[in-house]
């Protein structure tokens, strides 16, 4: 066990854990798009950035790849982290406004406007499908090709793969295309439709903690605005 300071709390975590695992273990939510338990950490979506080190000498690192060490000081929602994360979410939203996962993230972080031209892409290149195919399905049917702005997920030579078993694992893990959001329109990449959601769990739990990563509806309930403000 090693001792770390997690948002000011002294906690003990297993050696070899990543910051993300440790934070989630203690119920602290860190958003991710390219991380999935059971797949190797990839560090590509950059959303899981956290601040480490003592103030003045701190830096941002990806919590999904950074392993805890004795005495590590971690802040998962400092001003610095939130500022950069919001910009990243705005970029995601402009890239891929049709993804419900991303729209939800935007709502959570109060990203209410997009200052870039929406692209309406289907893929954010998080690589979940590629790792799913290779690591869980032992398929290696899909992968990346090209570089930089031309990078994409594809099959060899853009043709039907000979080794694909059509298991559908790739589609299952996709955060961008799996659940489409019908909200955003051509000229308005932020849908804000989720703002009208009723908390589905409210009837059961009233205002007690539900011990889950707070869902969008809960986060944005007007009665809890204070709580949300404190978080952000």
């Amino acid at each position: 066990m090693v001792q770390i300071a997690l948002n000011g709390l002294r906690v003990e975590v297993d050696e070899g854990m990543t910051i993300l695992e440790a934070a989630r273990f203690y119920g602290i939510a860190i958003p991710t798009l390219c991380y999935l338990e059971g797949l190797s950490p990839y560090g590509a979506c950059r959303l899981c950035l956290v601040e480490i080190g003592s103030p003045g000498q701190s830096k941002l690192v990806t919590s999904c790849t950074y392993r805890v060490e004795e005495g590590l000081i971690v802040r998962t929602d400092s001003d610095w982290v939130i500022k950069r994360r919001k910009m990243l979410i705005e970029l995601y939203l402009a890239t891929c406004p049709s993804s419900k996962v991303i729209q939800d993230l935007a709502s959570k972080y109060h990203v209410t406007s997009v200052r870039f031209t929406p692209w309406y892409e289907d893929c954010i290149l998080c690589g979940l499908c590629v790792r799913m195919c290779a690591e869980q399905m032992q398929g290696k049917a899909i992968g990346f090709a090209h570089r930089g702005s031309n990078r994409k997920v594809t099959t060899p030579f853009d043709k039907e793969s000979e080794v694909c078993r059509l298991c559908g694992g790739c589609m299952y893990v996709c955060p961008a295309c799996q659940s489409r959001c019908q909200g955003p329109q051509e000229e308005q990449p932020v849908c804000n439709a989720c703002l009208n959601l009723q908390q589905p769990c409210l009837d059961y739990f009233d205002d007690k903690m539900c011990f889950m990563d707070p869902c969008v509806a809960c986060e944005l309930d007007t009665n809890r605005e204070l709580k949300v403000k404190r978080r952000l």
Partner: peptide, 13 residues
């Protein structure tokens, strides 16, 4: 833009 590997989102996009 073309020399970035394209792996991480913040750099590519």
């Amino acid at each position: 833009k073309s020399e970035s590997c394209g792996k991480c989102f913040s750099c590519r996009v």
